[in-house]
Simulated assay, not measured.
Amino acid sequence: MAREVVPRPGVETMRAADADRHKIADQLKAALEEGRLSLGEYDDRLREVYAARTYADLLGLVADLPKAGLSAADVNARRLAEARRQARRMPLALQVLWTIWASVVAVNVAVWFLVEVTVAGHVYPWPIWLLAPGAALFATTIGVQSIRRQQRR
């Protein structure tokens, strides 16, 4: 009788290979050497590593361990740096608005330059009027970022 083929939702359900088990065992050994695991914990987890069938089984055994060579201070510093990076990140709506504004400015300046070069005499620099919506967008961005900063405190 043929087995029914079931679509797999993710990598976690895929079967692990011996090479994958060896990599996880090496991570556990490094954690033991760094003092993150006791000998008993190492032994228990190692047994589970070689009994694991899927990636989810394997990844669960090292989920609470940092990468080898990282101290708690390193992990904390990386976490804080990532939080600061996320805090500085502009909301998607503002990124879209800035992109649209920059595109409109670029097209207007290019057209103005072509007209200035091809027409005899001086042509009024109409792209300067695009500074007003740019200033409004800048003020909005500053306001949104300061509100977000206050909400995080």
Rank of each mutant, 00 (worst) to 15 (best):
residue 106 A to M: 03
residue 137 L to R: 01
residue 98 W to V: 11
residue 135 A to W: 05
residue 128 I to T: 07
residue 105 V to T: 02
residue 119 V to P: 12
residue 110 A to F: 12
residue 129 W to Y: 14
residue 93 A to I: 11
residue 111 V to C: 10
residue 136 A to C: 03
residue 94 L to H: 03
residue 134 G to P: 04
residue 112 W to M: 02
residue 124 Y to T: 02
residue 130 L to C: 00
residue 132 A to K: 08
residue 130 L to S: 11
residue 103 S to T: 13
residue 110 A to C: 14
residue 113 F to I: 03
residue 100 I to C: 13
residue 105 V to S: 06
residue 109 V to D: 11
residue 97 L to G: 10
residue 121 G to M: 01
residue 125 P to K: 07
residue 128 I to D: 05
residue 122 H to R: 13
residue 113 F to G: 10
residue 104 V to R: 02
residue 115 V to C: 01
residue 110 A to R: 09
residue 102 A to V: 02
residue 123 V to S: 14
residue 130 L to P: 00
residue 114 L to Q: 09
residue 99 T to S: 11
residue 131 L to S: 14
residue 101 W to L: 15
residue 135 A to G: 06
residue 137 L to P: 08
residue 106 A to N: 00
residue 98 W to T: 03
residue 106 A to F: 00
residue 101 W to M: 09
residue 109 V to A: 04
residue 132 A to M: 10
residue 124 Y to F: 15
residue 95 Q to G: 12
residue 109 V to L: 08
residue 108 N to P: 00
residue 116 E to Y: 00
residue 116 E to A: 10
residue 132 A to L: 15
residue 120 A to Q: 08
residue 99 T to Q: 03
residue 137 L to N: 10
residue 113 F to E: 09
residue 126 W to P: 12
residue 131 L to N: 14
residue 131 L to P: 08
residue 96 V to H: 13
residue 104 V to L: 13
residue 94 L to Q: 07
residue 128 I to R: 11
residue 137 L to M: 00
residue 103 S to H: 05
residue 123 V to W: 04
residue 125 P to T: 04
residue 121 G to L: 09
residue 119 V to W: 12
residue 131 L to G: 04
residue 107 V to P: 01
residue 127 P to V: 00
residue 101 W to C: 04
residue 112 W to E: 03
residue 137 L to C: 06
residue 119 V to K: 13
residue 119 V to C: 10
residue 120 A to G: 04
residue 100 I to N: 06
residue 100 I to P: 08
residue 111 V to A: 14
residue 125 P to S: 12
residue 114 L to G: 13
residue 126 W to E: 08
residue 115 V to T: 08
residue 107 V to R: 03
residue 96 V to N: 12
residue 117 V to H: 14
residue 122 H to E: 15
